[in-house]
Design a protein around this nucleic acid. Structure first.
Length: 883
RNA sequence: GCGCGAUUAGCUCAGUGGUAGAGCACUUGCUUCACACGCAAGGGGUCGCUGGUUCGAUACCAGCAUCGCGCACCA
């Protein structure tokens, strides 16, 4: 038997076990297994990503579910993988290129650039996989996938072609969200609105037909004035009715533009007049369509002004141009005023720069199966945890708009569309477009689309395209998806749609094709001040450093314990420290058991002859098992962790082990063996319950103490211990709680009497109950008493500290009693108990309460009152005994 | 503007129609034969506010306030 060192060293133990598990292929799923399935696909982290606390949270939860399922006898597949992260990875490489070689991707050309991305990927990619392994994740690495694997990429292309052939994917020239930094279109979901401080400029447009009269318009974007093609007001706005059909002089590039009326204008805003700029605003574009307005684009894809007619602005960056345009207007007397103004602006989720609404030719997907996707969640074929996300999901689906899926990015799945070379300027015509996985046979006459698809257009197949057919047959649909709620639209909803549309399941039935049965939305990890973790704030701790400091198990347990469902987590390193401390506590209490001899591999206890303390701890173990079971059903991991923490630390260590020392250090060998067996049963059960949270530590103790055959990973979860008849258990437990209460009262006496806790002291217990004598040795130990004497007729000297306990009156024997102090203490105690008794009594005197409250509640109050009254009498008696 | 969530001890959070809870932090005592990453004792709360339902509300209902999030608007 290997001896357990005093301090547990996770850094030595954890990698050793992980390596062993890998060698044993413990995480590899077997599609031919007859066992019931349990499967999870990991939300794929970005290929060049680093492990964040968000990953730690999500992947720990997945690991807990996977490990628990393995113990419960499921055939488990936890399928890991990575995402190529189109825009993100490309941006990183472009940045690197600019810094090191001062080149753009266009300088290198597509082929060379992609070669560089692959180099970058080889150098920086996949680190996160090692980090997940350090965390202890029990993924089936033999099935690791990548969104750019050949088979996966082929599936993405096939889906594109199929949807095109179904008429669901189309190409169109429409207003899209343009990211000028990444220089690509993005989807509506990738635009986040943020409050932005700026100015509202009031610009004067002279009326052509009435020189000297001006139309004033409020705008935040004077730099786009050159692209104005109309002025508009609300048709019901009497202020401007006489101007309808007239014209205004557009400033800067002076030109006549019509004055029109349109319902879309809010007469309340600004002056009630809108300058219509169809090329640079979605609403203006719609108005332009309705009124057949020309479209003038004065911005380049990088967000610079393109307007040679105004040399002062031409080439300026859009925000510089805004200031300059205002100055120009001011100089010409056309700027009435500029007010400070705060409005919401759409920012690119990716590059964090303001989005530019832009007219552009892109590929779009008309979502299929939206009604069905709503139904499967509404009808709970797919259950969301917490449930309130169902509503968020439904709202999105009910207001869904077509998805712009093309990206002007090279890194990713290239769009399988070809254009006829000769007439490439007329791409709209169907005859000029060929969509197919293979290029057209006369490929020299065709040119492939330069764009790639949105990364999420590949991720939405992740739930099943990651599985080969055999694996899919066994493990699809997956059991549960664990993910952060911020990708509910990006990923969760689209995966559901994909499952329903492409039907990868074993039959056509909806239940076989939904991608998962449960979705658990994890919290978002924030810093201790509630801010989001971000690189720029530097408030994001490195999980690997935390693992070095506290161990993977400590990190996992600490994080789980503070992770509420449905709310954000405020991260505080002290909580991880607690996780580490808990690991050490468990280690030490196991060590304590080991010091008293070897454990039985399959521990057995004789439930007929258990000590009352053993009954108590086993009953609490049973309660813990029940509580954990129901918490798991709702994915309340924090509650599971809290129950385990309380049971181990309080019920087992603080109370049972301390009480058990009476027998362990006693002379009765049979009792000693019995109590050690109880410890083995409890430890064995506890380790198994804790294993999903703290896999390495529990495996280490399990193995060193030889508590089971083989790895704890496949040990069955503990069953509740069958105890004796309920009545006996109740009696036993009442006695134990009386003993424990007496201990607490005695310790309190010691403390208020200012006796240091290491000093042996004497107690006298005044009671008629002779059966108490059996508990005296344990009482003595827990009170660190020299001696406890049972004396039914004890006459205490005046001033002797006393506590009224369920076992009788407990007197502290000290040489010089502080009579005044004791009187004061008793008075306080009498007042406190008296208050409580009066409260209960008042309630019982309330007829309405006695008549209407449930009988059990009333009875409980009566019992309580009589107990308090008895206690009060004894306390008063003790006080009156003082001189 | 619409929707969602939160509001309980200094902090992070549980919780229940019937006597307010945990961990940390704080105060005090302790190197007692598993553990100072520990043991023991203690202080600390009008359960956001106002109404309603009820014998009884921190809990259920309504309104309000504050904070956070999402959607829409955003000239």
């Amino acid at each position: 038997m290997a001896e357990l060192p005093k301090r547990y060293d996770p850094n030595a133990v954890e990698p050793r076990w992980y390596q062993r598990w890998l060698e044993n292929r413990d995480f590899v799923a077997n599609p031919e297994s007859p066992k019931p399935l349990f499967s999870i696909v990991m939300p794929p982290p970005n290929i060049t990503g680093m492990l964040t606390l968000g990953h730690v949270l999500g992947d720990t939860i997945q690991d807990i579910l996977a490990r628990r399922a393995r113990m419960e006898g499921f055939e488990v597949l936890w399928l890991p993988g990575m995402d190529h992260a189109g825009i993100g990875t490309q941006t990183a490489v472009e940045k690197h290129l600019r810094r090191t070689e001062n080149k753009t991707r266009h300088d290198l050309g597509r082929e060379e650039f992609l070669r560089r991305v692959l180099q970058w990927q080889d150098k920086h990619g996949g680190i996160i996989i090692e980090q997940l392994q350090r965390l202890g994740c029990s993924c089936d690495w033999s099935r690791q996938r990548y969104t750019l694997d050949d088979a996966y990429a082929a599936a993405v292309q096939k889906v594109f072609v199929d949807l095109y052939n179904k008429g669901l994917i189309y190409r169109g020239r429409r207003m899209i969200n343009w990211d000028p930094a990444a220089q690509t279109a993005v989807s509506d979901e990738e635009v986040i609105s943020k409050a932005q401080k700026g100015h509202l400029y009031f610009v004067r447009y002279e009326i052509v037909e009435e020189p000297g009269r001006f139309l004033e318009v409020a705008t935040t974007r004077p730099e786009t004035i050159m692209a104005d093609t109309a002025m508009a007001f609300h048709p019901g706005d009497k202020r401007y009715l006489d101007l309808l059909g007239k014209h205004a002089w557009r400033p800067l590039v002076r030109e006549k533009i019509p004055i029109i009326a349109d319902e879309a204008i809010d007469p309340e805003f600004g002056t009630g007049v809108l300058k219509v700029t169809p090329a640079h605003d979605a609403l203006d574009f719609e108005i332009g369509q309705r009124h057949n307005l020309p479209i003038i684009d004065v911005l380049t894809p990088t967000g610079r002004v393109n307007c040679p007619a105004i040399p002062e602005l031409h080439g300026l960056e859009r925000f510089d141009a805004r200031k300059r345009a205002a100055e120009l207007l001011q100089a010409r007397g056309l700027l009435a005023k500029a007010e400070p103004y705060e409005n919401n602006i759409g920012f690119s989720d990716r590059s964090d720069v303001p989005i530019e609404p832009r007219l552009s030719e892109q590929w779009f997907l008309r979502y299929p199966k939206t009604k069905e996707a709503l139904a499967v969640v509404r009808d709970h074929l797919i259950r969301f945890f917490p449930t309130h996300w169902e509503k968020v999901y439904a709202q999105w689906l009910e207001n869904i708009r077509d998805w712009c899926i093309s990206r002007q990015v090279w890194w990713g799945h290239r769009i399988p569309a070809w254009y006829a070379k000769k007439k490439s300027e007329v791409r709209n015509s169907k005859a000029e477009i060929y969509v197919g996985i293979e290029p057209p046979s006369d490929s020299e006459n065709w040119i492939q689309d330069e764009d790639t698809v949105d990364t999420w257009f590949s991720s939405w197949l992740w739930a099943y395209e990651t599985m080969d057919l055999e694996t899919r047959k066994k493990f699809y649909p997956t059991s549960v998806l664990v993910t952060a709620a911020d990708i509910i639209f990006f990923w969760v909803a689209r995966m559901i749609i994909a499952g329903l549309e492409f039907k990868p399941g074993k039959s056509d039935k909806i239940k076989d094709n939904i991608p998962f049965k449960h979705v658990f939305f994890t919290s978002i990890v924030r810093d201790s001040q509630g801010r989001k973790m971000s690189k720029s704030l530097g408030n994001s701790p490195d999980p690997l450093e935390l693992i070095d400091k506290y161990g993977a198990d400590g990190l996992r347990f600490g994080l789980m314990r503070i992770a509420p469902t449905g709310q954000d987590i405020r991260f505080d390193e002290r909580q991880i420290e607690e996780g580490r401390n808990f690991a050490t506590k468990l280690w030490n209490v196991a060590r304590f058991r080991q010091m008293h001899g070897a454990s039985e591999t399959i521990p057995k206890i004789d439930t007929q002859s258990l000590s009352i303390y053993a009954v108590e701890v086993l009953a609490r173990l049973n309660e813990t098992i029940d509580a954990i079971e129901s918490a798991y059903r709702e994915y309340h991991f924090n509650i599971v962790a809290q129950h385990l923490y309380n049971f181990v630390w309080s019920d087992y260590c603080d109370w049972f082990v301390e009480a058990a020392k009476t027998d362990i250090f006693g002379d009765d060998e049979a009792k000693k063996r019995a109590v050690l067996a109880v410890m083995d049963v409890v430890l064995s059960a506890t380790l198994r319950l804790l294993h999903p949270f703290m896999p390495h530590l529990t495996e280490e103790i399990w193995s060193l103490m030889n508590l089971g055959k083989g790895s704890i990973q496949f040990a069955a979860p503990p069953q509740k211990v069958a105890l004796e008849t309920a009545a006996d258990v109740t009696n036993n437990r009442q006695l134990v709680s009386a003993v424990y209460e007496t201990v607490q009262a005695g310790r309190n006496l010691r403390s208020v009497s200012k006796l240091p806790s290491n000093r042996k002291i004497q107690f006298i217990l005044r009671t008629d109950d002779k059966s108490i004598s059996a508990q005296i040795s344990t009482l003595s130990r827990l009170l660190n008493a020299e001696e406890i004497t049972l004396d039914p007729k004890y006459k205490a000297p005046a001033g002797a500290p006393v506590a009224v306990t369920p076992l009788g009156e407990l007197f502290l024997v000290i040489a010089a009693a502080d009579e005044a102090g004791e009187r004061e203490r008793l008075d306080k105690e009498i007042a406190r108990i008296g208050d409580e008794a009066r409260t209960v009594e008042a309630k019982l005197q309330n007829n309405a309460f006695v008549e209407r409250a449930p009988a059990a509640v009333v009875e409980e109050h009566r019992r309580r009152l009589s107990a308090l009254t008895a206690q009060l009498a004894k306390l008063k008696h003790a006080r009156d005994g003082l001189s």
